[in-house]
Design a protein around this nucleic acid. Structure first.
Length: 501
RNA sequence: GGCCCCAUCGUCUAGAGGCCUAGGACGAAGCCCUCUCAAGGCUUAAACACGGGUUCGAAUCCCGUUGGGGUCACCA
């Protein structure tokens, strides 16, 4: 059974690069019918930022990445980080937890001692200052500094010595070879790999030990992570080797860079997933876009628009590219539009609610809800982002609109008096019309055009502007039906007033 | 700087020696449709970083150059 994971450290909100790494890991599991889980890497207590575990879980789930296991209420309570939407206790689907590393410190410690006993790890007590001095000396001598066992300043460190740390005793020659799922074959010389610290002076484990231990203990079959880890591969490979653990597969996915070609970072304003949500993007579009950032179906398949189910069916690590990608909005916007168009109208209505509210449009009464339902089909194909809904429909939800300026009421290539004449004629005809038939409305207005020797564009522009106060709206006659006869005529009357003045 | 990785249109990519006068998508430009805006349809411009090899033949393999990225913590 395939088992993958995403293992962020709770030091800040997840940004798009992290979410994409999680997505690939998730899609790999889903595509192979395996399991995917979330693990929190909080071995460094100093960098812990309260609230970020919830942020991580929420943004993953918003994107459509759900996990078979992860921190549950019990784990989160211990950290004082519990929240209502967390995983139910013990909902781990057979994956051994707990999924928060601070609860597992004793396991790492135990394993490190075993490695020391085995003679493949050793104790040492160089101080940070001493280490720093050694580096500086090496640099001055134009040597690269590589800490090996032979470099210890004191070789007689005892188990009980306070504050000592433990390093893994890496080979001094030979090479480590990894056949990476994404990068292909990667080779490292052991000679220039440091002996990594696996247990710190305070007794806690470093990433190298904790993450690998957990990946083994939790039965991870494919370690999918970002390329920033590629350089530590020899350490990890060797740790697996000396521990006697079965070797998992590794896949290092490239970074996502910003428009400037540099790695995305929070400092440079890399957006969190919540910002995408708030900017009116659909999770469907976000997942689709992220998947395309570095992955393509390949094999002559040129599909661009994917549902999550299609992604589950088609995703494969074999088609994840090895070069970094640049994040850019235009294609995301396009995908968002296409996914909006694929939504069922009442689904779209639901998703629009927070954005309508933000735009100051209240949709609470049955009448208002009915209005929204009628307006949706008119706007669905012209929405790129949910945030655009406000100006498109606000005038339909209010009784009166601000006075429309005179310039807007003069038709293209027309004079004021002609426009006024046309408006009055339209008002007369509309006064006798039923407003419940869009096609009928349009027909009579087109007839009026013929009669007045005006182009539809000329007459319709005047009416549109008079009724909406805007030059860009959804289709006119559908809108008039939605707004209703009384309100339409009142607005036309007001426009006639303006033009007559 | 050492080590490692990467390199196809502006962007995301297809391409695993002949199917490539390099395909698709976004974006751009133009046309059509059209009551505005969209959506849709059609068309155009746009790339194998450079230099050497290997081969009958290279975007695809090798070497070098250049450019970019990652990493060099008792952080992850």
């Amino acid at each position: 059974m395939v088992r993958t994971r995403f293992a962020p450290s709770p030091t800040g909100a997840l940004h798009i690069g992290g979410v994409r790494t999680a997505l690939f890991s998730f899609l790999l599991a889903r595509s192979l019918g395996g399991q995917f889980f979330l693990r929190i890497e909080d071995t460094d207590r100093a960098r812990f930022k309260p609230g970020t575990i919830q942020q991580i879980m929420d943004s993953l789930r918003w994107t459509g990445i759900d996990f078979d296991a992860g921190p549950d209420h019990a784990s989160l309570s211990k950290l004082g980080e519990d929240f209502p939407g967390a995983l139910p206790d013990a909902a781990n689907h057979g994956i051994p937890g707990p999924f928060v590393q601070s609860e597992r410190l004793h396991l790492y410690r135990e394993h490190a001692e075993k490695l020391v006993a085995q003679g493949v790890a050793y104790r040492c007590n160089e101080t940070p200052e001493e280490l720093q001095r050694m580096r500086l000396e090496a640099e001055a001598a134009k040597r690269t500094f590589t800490f090996k066992k032979a470099n210890r300043l004191r070789a007689d460190v005892q188990p009980g010595d306070p504050g000592h740390h433990i390093r893994l005793d890496m080979p001094i020659m030979g090479q480590a070879v990894l056949d990476d799922l994404v990068m292909g074959r990667v080779t490292f010389e052991y000679a220039n790999v440091d002996d990594p610290v696996i247990v710190k002076g305070d007794g806690s484990a470093t990433y190298h030990l904790a993450a690998m231990y957990d990946d083994w203990a939790m039965g991870v079959t494919h370690i999918i992570r970002s390329t920033e880890w590629l350089a530590s591969v020899p350490k990890h490979l060797y740790l697996f080797h000396v521990s006697g653990w079965p070797m998992p597969k590794f896949g290092h996915v490239p970074n996502v860079n910003g428009e400037d070609g540099k790695k995305l970072s929070k400092r440079k304003g890399a957006p969190s997933m919540f910002e995408f949500r708030d900017a009116g993007y659909l999770p469907e579009a976000a997942m689709n876009y992220l998947a395309l950032l570095g992955w393509a179906p390949g094999g002559g398949d040129e599909q661009n628009v994917f549902t999550s189910a299609e992604l589950f069916a088609k995703f494969s690590m074999a088609h994840v590219g090895s070069s970094p990608a640049i994040f850019s909005y235009p294609k995301l916007d396009w995908l968002n539009g296409t996914h909006i168009r694929r939504l069922a109208p009442d689904d779209l209505a639901g998703r629009l609610m927070p954005f309508l509210k933000k735009a100051g449009i209240t949709v609470e009464t049955p009448e208002q809800k009915a209005m929204l339902a009628r307006v949706i089909p008119l706007v669905q194909e012209r929405l790129k982002r949910l945030t655009e809904i406000g100006p498109l429909v606000d005038f339909a939800f209010v009784k009166t609109i601000p006075p429309v300026p005179r310039e807007l009421l003069i038709g293209p290539k027309m004079e004021q008096h002609l426009s006024l004449f046309a408006l009055k004629a339209a008002r007369d005809v509309l006064g006798t019309q039923q407003f419940d038939d869009d096609a009928g409305l349009e027909k009579t207005m087109r007839d009026l055009c013929d009669e007045l020797k005006l182009k539809p564009n000329q007459l319709f522009t005047i009416i549109r502007n008079a009724i909406s106060g805007k030059t860009v709206t959804p289709p006119l006659f559908g809108l008039m039906g939605v707004i209703g006869k009384d309100v339409c005529l009142a607005r036309i009357d007001a426009a006639i007033q303006t033009l007559s003045a």
